[in-house]
Simulated scan of single mutants.
Amino acid sequence: MSKKSKKPANTKNAIVEPEDYKSALHDLQIELVKLQRHLIKNDLRILILFEGRDASGKDGVIKRITEHLSPRDTRVVALGKPSNRDTHSWYFQRYAAQLPATGEMVLMNRSWYNRAGVERVMGFCPKTEHEEFMQSVLPFERLLVNSGTQVFKYYLDISKLEQKSRLEARRDDPLKQWKVSPIDKTALRHWDDYSTARNEMFARTHSDDLPWHVVRADDKKQARLNVIRHLMSRVDCPEKDKHLAKADPETVFDYAKEHVQSGAIAP
């Protein structure tokens, strides 16, 4: 979506009825299977980065994408706290070890952009390391692209009210206790700091060849369906159903400064 394209409306997405959602998801997951067959047959590589605030729905989107894909050819990467060795190594080193081989799709639940978000806001890295990252990340990603890896960057965007609701629900749900972390407690308190860090990340790491795709994710079901639609619209897969590969432009759109100014991206 170019800067001249129609701006996404600042309204909530229409509610998806349960049966409609299940049917739409089923059809889109068939498209993903087609994509994987094409990926394996042609020795291609796909890397998908998912970023967003805590509780923005990254796990849910990733689960729906990978649910019916081959576990041998699909990997979800969610790295934990860096080890002492990691902190004394080239920043991208531990991520480089997780990159896809030919025929693989890798989905990163948070990625090297941790340095532009959580690490910056929480003071886990000095300003010099943050600046070094901001200057080197696009050249690093271009190396991947030039070597044959397709790279997609999605940012799941939610409102402050929605984040508060989800974090509270997470704390009260015994099946989601593994998601609770000390960082959760500071997420709302540092809302504005995260917004500032996010906006700088967008401004400095978005480019025509490596764009940030923003996903309005207050409606989880709409977000899941439209990420898959958008992904299918961007990949070359001869067998895909082009009618299904059309994302709602009010739900998924490329970053542009005016979207921050208009409130289409949560302030």
Rank of each mutant, 00 (worst) to 15 (best):
K41R: 11
K34G: 05
D219A: 14
C125L: 12
D219V: 07
R224I: 09
M1R: 05
R115T: 09
S165C: 07
P82E: 07
L39S: 05
T186S: 13
K160W: 02
L49F: 02
I265H: 13
L143A: 12
S136P: 00
L175D: 00
N42Q: 10
T66G: 03
A203N: 10
I40T: 07
Y155P: 03
D218F: 04
R166K: 06
Y155W: 14
R234I: 06
G103N: 01
W191K: 01
A9P: 02
L161Q: 15
S56Y: 14
A203R: 09
K12R: 13
F124L: 03
K34V: 10
V180T: 11
F140V: 07
H259M: 03
N13T: 14
L210V: 05
R189L: 11
E141G: 02
Y154R: 00
K81W: 01
L210W: 09
W191Y: 07
M232G: 08
Y194V: 11
R198W: 07
H206P: 05
G57T: 11
A256R: 12
K3N: 12
P71C: 02
G80S: 00
I183P: 01
I46G: 02
Q93C: 05
S207I: 04
P8C: 05
M122L: 14
D241G: 10
N84T: 15
V76K: 09
Q150S: 13
L167T: 01
I48L: 10
D59E: 04
D43I: 07
K22Y: 03
E67I: 00
V77Q: 01
H26P: 06
A266V: 10
P126C: 02
T196I: 10
L188Q: 02
G148N: 01
G103V: 00
P126I: 01
V118Q: 01
V145E: 00
